[in-house]
Nucleic acid binder design. Structure first.
Lengths: 187, 187
DNA sequence: GCTTCCACTTGACAAAAATCAAGAACATTT
DNA sequence: AAATGTTCTTGATTTTTGTCAAGTGGAAGC
């Protein structure tokens, strides 16, 4: 069983081995180099990928600064969800922070899953609902915690990320400046 | 066509009138009084409701303060999503800020929709995905905007809310203190 | 090995927002 | 109308966080 199959079965709970094989056969291996863009804001978001190895940064460039929305690592799916699902221009830019191995499905093939695997839409609904809950938690941290508390919480759950990606991106993702993050970490 | 049917058909795009009738027949009218609790943190979240009239506040009480996550008004659905879908204890407390008329579906009946309306899971997936996108936007405001900018943005899109609910709840929802909101508004 | 480029740190200062405390405005009840 | 209880405002102050600027350290390229 590939990492993709394990992930799909653990998160989506597809029961039938045959269905699992169908799903994973539609994902194709893809490699992107450090610095390459997986997606650009405004372009068509026509693929959904599973990160096998490597790190990607999801961000948006504003007039003043780049705002990092999320950092995707091994075991995560990566896409611009609204662009992918609703066939609208991508909201986010996604760039590889390291050489990255992906399993990628094109929208065309993705649509076939719903036909081939009857339970797919329901499983996907549950998956997106759990993502929704994660974002609810994240909003809650911004409504109720200081920068330092947000750092502590994130650090507890993502220790290994801190020696793999530039801290400035983590700072942005936590809603603080690199200087503030640096001062918090000094303690 | 009831407000519920209009909302379901506009958001979920159910094509068949018969299907729409099936869905809306499973929602039952319910009234709750100002101050009553629709849901308590830790309890079972076993219903999903459509707000026909009235206002509800979704919040969580922490040691120091109450954190308002969202305010639901006419035309919104209200539930604790993670509790409702995954049958877990509710994360949020939901209280009526005014007398409120709801159309409510119990989880038991909700599960029947998926059987009665084949497209339901897909439509629901799309609906939850759009909710996900809304939360992404909201996180982005906390990563990139000042309290004043968040206020301006929210005020532009929700003017009418400001003379219907206590401003302290809006302040909390926007991630600032009531004093800060008051000072921003003085300008 | 030297240069160049980043990323990070540090200090001084400014701005934003929170806290604390008092009082005003407003609605609700009696 | 008086009393009560919220909610909102305002001022003074503190804390938190951001900004600007300079400097350090390490990694990659020449």
């Amino acid at each position: 069983m590939t990492a993709l199959e394990q992930y799909v079965s653990s998160y989506f709970g597809v029961a039938e081995a045959a269905e699992l094989a169908v799903i994973s056969s539609l994902f194709k291996p893809e490699t992107i180099k450090k610095g390459d863009y997986f997606l650009l804001t405004g372009k068509a978001s026509d693929r959904l990928s599973f990160v096998q190895t490597g790190i990607l940064r999801i961000f948006l460039a504003t007039e003043n600064k780049e705002v990092t929305q999320w950092i995707s690592t091994k075991g995560y799916f990566v896409t611009d969800l609204s662009g992918f699902i609703f066939e609208k221009p991508a909201r986010w830019t996604i760039q590889a922070l390291t050489d990255t191995d992906l399993f990628t499905i094109k929208r065309e093939d993705y649509k076939r899953i719903g036909v081939l695997v009857p339970k797919w839409h329901e499983l996907e609904k549950l998956f997106i609902a759990s993502c929704f809950t994660t974002l609810e938690d994240r909003i809650f941290t911004h409504l109720s915690m200081t920068a330092e508390e947000r750092y502590e919480l994130f650090f507890e759950h993502n220790k290994s990320l801190f020696n793999q990606v530039p801290l400035q991106y983590i700072a942005s993702m936590l809603g603080m400046t690199p200087e503030t993050l640096s001062r918090i970490r000094k303690k």
